[in-house]
Design a protein around this nucleic acid. Structure first.
Ligand SMILES: [Mn+2]
Ligand SMILES: [Mn+2]
Ligand SMILES: [Zn+2]
Ligand SMILES: [Zn+2]
Lengths: 143, 143
DNA sequence: TTGAGATTTAGAATTATTCCAAGTATTGAC
DNA sequence: GTCAATACTTGGAATAATTCTAAATCTCAA
């Protein structure tokens, strides 16, 4: 995670191509996401962001998250009815939701992109897989 | 769709095994869902249900939908942030969301249940695939 | 230096859903 | 059949997550 050398130009450039500026708030929100790979909600991002930037507002967190999503640096993850979660991992992957602890984990899709035969006429542009069950910790505990 | 002969015992029995009663409202909400295969929201179900049962309330529609889901007669479908949609098709299938018209379509998963290699320790119990793109009508129109 | 446009912010508004408490209906024991 | 226990429906209040709004602040380029 060579943050300064690699992250900065990337985030700057990505925002720029969407006509957005790199602001301290946006960078900080992105850092918060990169710091922990648990798919936090906007609320959780807000709480974490405040630690180092006490004056940041909830509205700004929503704005920043939106800017990061728009510029392709962050993915939104929606799990049934709950609050939207955010994921800075832009590699192709799907999400595993633990029904016991509520945790969300990345599952790499090596090459096995699920193949689904489309009925005539449908043009698929994007497909999303989500899995639910028990994470390793919870599975072990339930034994 | 031999409704009376086949639907009634099924819905009655399914509700019963969850300790729930078959009420006129529950049956009517189920009928509304069966009448059109377009994954309506609770609001839409409410509007349609009122046509033949003008005194039904929104709260009851939510309650009925919940009862039907609990007893395994109806599936909930969540598409990103939007209102939950409801689907009376209990065969294994996934959902196609048209980014142009917003329609939701059932896509049968013949046998091709997507195979995903689980990292060590994860116990998957359920997996869900959703696809977005253009439905046949919208795809043709965009040509 | 300056002003147009972008960004941040607090708080109001909105949306979808759940909760609540009261009234109504159904059921089974007698 | 009567009656109480239980289930169900209902309107409205409450909640949760998100979006909107309008004013203050910041940034960049001329
Ligand atoms: Mn992820
Ligand atoms: Mn469906
Ligand atoms: Zn877990
Ligand atoms: Zn369409």
């Amino acid at each position: 995670m060579g943050s300064v050398e690699k992250k900065m130009p990337r985030i700057n450039e990505r925002l720029a191509t969407s006509g957005l500026r790199l602001t301290p708030q946006r960078e900080h929100v992105y850092d918060v996401l990169l710091a922990e790979r648990d798919h936090p909600t906007a609320e959780q991002v807000f709480l974490r962001a405040k630690k180092d930037m006490p004056d940041i507002s909830m509205a700004t967190v929503y704005n920043c998250l939106d800017a990061l999503v728009t510029s392709g640096l962050v993915k939104q993850v929606n799990l049934d009815r709950g609050a939207t979660r955010f994921c800075p991992n832009m590699h192709e992957h799907c999400h595993f939701y633990c029904e016991s602890c509520g945790g969300v984990y990345d599952i790499g899709l090596t090459r096995a992109r699920p193949e689904v035969p489309m009925p005539r006429g449908f043009k698929a542009t994007h497909l999303e897989l989500s899995i639910r069950g028990l994470c390793p910790d919870c599975a072990a505990r339930k034994k």
